[in-house]
Structures are given as structure tokens and as C-alpha cells.
Design a protein around this nucleic acid. Sequence first.
DNA 1: CTCAAAAGGACTTTTTATGTCTTTTTAGGG
DNA 2: CCCTAAAAAGACATAAAAAGTCCTTTTGAG
Lengths: 134, 134
Amino acid sequence: MMELTRKGEYAIRGIVYLASRPADQVCLLSDIAAAVDVPPTFLAKIFQQFSKIGLVKSYRGTGGGFILGRPADKITLLDVVEAVEGPIIPNRCVVNGIDCDRSTACNVHPVWMNVQSQVRGILGKVTLKDLAEG
Amino acid sequence: MMELTRKGEYAIRGIVYLASRPADQVCLLSDIAAAVDVPPTFLAKIFQQFSKIGLVKSYRGTGGGFILGRPADKITLLDVVEAVEGPIIPNRCVVNGIDCDRSTACNVHPVWMNVQSQVRGILGKVTLKDLAEG
DNA sequence: CTCAAAAGGACTTTTTATGTCTTTTTAGGG
DNA sequence: CCCTAAAAAGACATAAAAAGTCCTTTTGAG
């Protein structure tokens, strides 16, 4: 369980690569796709999602491409993963707040809440800067 | 991401219900399925998986049914989840040990290792006894 | 021997993942 | 203004996984 999809993996590869480039240099999607070995059309969709929420900035037309939407140390792995995979929800009932639909006193619920919070904590502390260097 | 499948949810519901019954009382699958509102044929498959790894013991024929394979405080949520969902692997490369196939120095890898270990830690500390009472 | 129950296997249907293709918008440069 | 380069958008296509059903077989008690 809890497996990242290929989309998520591609997303990370792509944006980490972008973070590893000079911050002011606009990168072609086709170049990124080639560098990280991801189907360009698929990566395009992913970067469109990034663009919508500001993780990257896009420029169209001749000389266009992508740069990071903010400094690499201000983008976390959590941002990236949630951008393409949706929120981190180990169990559906977590979204309903405190109570499951199954029973008023569901003992499993707080466990999932705990899992969610721990995972978010871990991913939220890792930035693209961390991932791009080293 | 990280969402439990319905199968996993059913599995938990079913075995927690079983754990809430008197330990020596054999339970019919059909009764369990009705009690936790899961398609009986589907739950049957799940309990077959449980049975194979000893989480439950099954008895065939007249008067048959299921009981827990060991005391409720010796079965963890991790046991149950991994029984039906497979091992907890946030990213494929975690299984290959220390190195990703993508690059020799993948900085993302230790993060997934950390996630895996945290989640396993949380789920491994919750037993069916905890979940069945209260 | 018969009936009740789980086990096993083959199947179907639905949903999600993983892409591709084509058209449209935007922008730069002559 | 026109041409070309690039991302955006949307409609498809295919494949894999999830979710569930159905039928047959095995096992056991009475």
C-alpha cells in the first residue's frame, strides 16, 4: 500500500531536475523530459498542474519554458506530491474530520490521523533544495 | 496518495469485528459480512488470505467458521493491512535496498525509507485488542 | 449420505493509471 | 503582419488494478 504512482515519481524527478538548474534559466519541457527519462506529453500534463498552483512558472512561445515558481528551499516534497497525487489520506474517513461514517466510536480513525500527520510532517520538511544538491 | 483500498478497509472491519467476539466462539463468514456490511463473497477472499498466514483459523463444514489465529493483542494493524495490501512501500525503489535504479545518489530515497519506517511503527503498535474494545 | 461451510479458480465489470494526439493560445522575431 | 516556437487544453486510447461475482471442489459433522 501507499505506493507513489508513476505520475508522482515523474513529477518529483522533473521538478527536482528543474531545481538543479540555474534558477534564472528557463528550461524547455522537452529537455527536462529527456533528462529525467519521462514521456514528454505526460510530463507536460504534470507541469501544467504545477503551473496552476504556482510551483513552477511557465513562459509560452519562442524562448519559452519553465522555471521554479519560488526558491527551491521554499518548495517541499509534500507540495510536489500533493500537487499531483492529491492530499495524503490513508483512509477516506480522515477527510470527514473526527468521525467515520461507519461508527461514532471508530478506534481506527485516530491511527490514520496519526499516520497522515507523521507522513505530512516528514515530506513537509524536505525541500527541493535538499533534493537537488548533494 | 497512500489511500487504503476498499479491500483493506473491509479486511480491518471484518477482523476487528471477529476480535470483538468471544475468543472461543466460531463465527460464520456470512454473519461477519452482514455485521460489517461487506459483500460476503469478497470478504471470503480476504479471510482466505488471513487464514493462509495464520491471522485467523478456519473450520470447514457444518458448525464451521472463523476464529482469530492468535490472541487479539498479538495481531497488529500492520499485520492485517500488509496481509491484504502487501508490504508498505511508499516508492518502488525502497524495496531495492539502499539504491534506486535511477541514480546512485538519490536523495529522495532516504525520505521514503523514513516514511515507511514511521508508518510501520505506528501500525505495528496498534493491536486488534485496542481496536476491538473501547 | 447429506448438508453446511470454507477453499479455490475462473470470470466480469468498473475504475484508475498511463499515456497519446490534435487543436488552441501565447509570444518573439523578422 | 506573418511565421515559428512553445506551453495549454481537451479529447481520446490502452492497460492495469480494484472490486466483486459465480461455480465447483474440498472438508467435516451428524
